Simulated scan of single mutants.
Amino acid sequence: MQERRDIVRFAPSPNGWLHLGHAYSAIFASETARALGGRFLLRIEDIDIGRCRPEYEQAIYEDLAWLGLEWEHPVRRQSEHFADYEAALKRLRDMGLVYPCFATRKEIADAIEGSGIGHARWPVDPDGAPVYPGLYKDIAPAELNRLMWEGRSYAWRIDMEKALARAEEMNGGPIFFHEDAGGPQGQAGRLPIDPMLFGDVVIARKDVPTSYHLAVTVDDAIQNVTVVTRGQDLFPATYVHRLLQILLGLPEPRYRHHPLVRDETGRRLSKSAKDMGLRELRLAGATPAEVRRLAGI
């Protein structure tokens, strides 16, 4: 019987130009696949229809090819596979683990302010967002039907406490994930998850039947990804993804979280800060070797 090969992927979002941090992550994934004798995939994570642009996607292909990377075809584009995410969301709904949340940002902010705790002391999740205060979580069926009938916008949130209890029951005990190497504090081995840090995180929305957490979990399973490589900033997201893997009956990959590329002040590079992109470096005459050096590879 033919031995199964590891599969590694790089999954950028086409909502801006790739920068040095993306170059590091792409090369890290490609070289991980090569070291394992595995396959390297490229996936376009374009569920954010409002911000993703065709020119950014085309630049991804051009930048990665310029760096000398090769990937398998066809490339999976998330916007073409909403049915896969809808099916996973339906399964979570049928399990009674998600609920529609109609709260606006202002309602959430007002609830936090009126809690007696205030914004300064209110808990935040690992991404820095305020933990959801539970509005609309236990509303009466009649009120839920009214809001649905009115056509109000809503997000599907996972009932994290209920979901974790169900997942641990399905797993036969506490849930762990395997970090090959490279956690933020140098963690490696069999590590516990703590998805409660995120609270009732958004899993999908009315207009888009998925979120980053749900889409990436489903995609990795569909594409048979065995090693997930990504930046250390996404280390806590593994808690939510491992939880979803258990609930949806999906296979468990291994993880390798790599260091982030930072500027001279220690700030990590980002699209929102408009850090210099690979496209600008290419047009300025930089070579792939120079980019590798700048990225610390």
Rank of each mutant, 00 (worst) to 15 (best):
A120G: 04
I139Q: 00
A109F: 04
Y136R: 14
T104P: 02
V124I: 15
A155C: 04
S153G: 11
H119I: 11
S153K: 14
L144C: 03
G128S: 13
A142E: 08
G151H: 14
G118E: 08
G134T: 07
A155L: 07
E150G: 07
D125E: 12
P141D: 02
I112V: 13
L144A: 00
Y132W: 05
A142M: 05
P141A: 02
G118L: 00
A103I: 13
V131M: 09
D125Y: 10
E143W: 00
E150D: 06
G134Q: 05
S153C: 13
G151K: 09
H119D: 11
M148R: 14
K137R: 14
P123R: 10
W122P: 03
M148W: 14
I139T: 04
I112N: 05
P130S: 03
E143R: 04
S115T: 15
R121K: 11
P133I: 05
Y132R: 03
W122H: 09
I139M: 10
I139L: 02
I117C: 04
R105F: 06
A103K: 01
R146C: 03
R152Q: 11
D110H: 06
Y136V: 09
G118W: 13
E143C: 03
M148N: 01
W156F: 14
D110V: 07
L147G: 02
E107C: 08
G128W: 08
L135I: 15
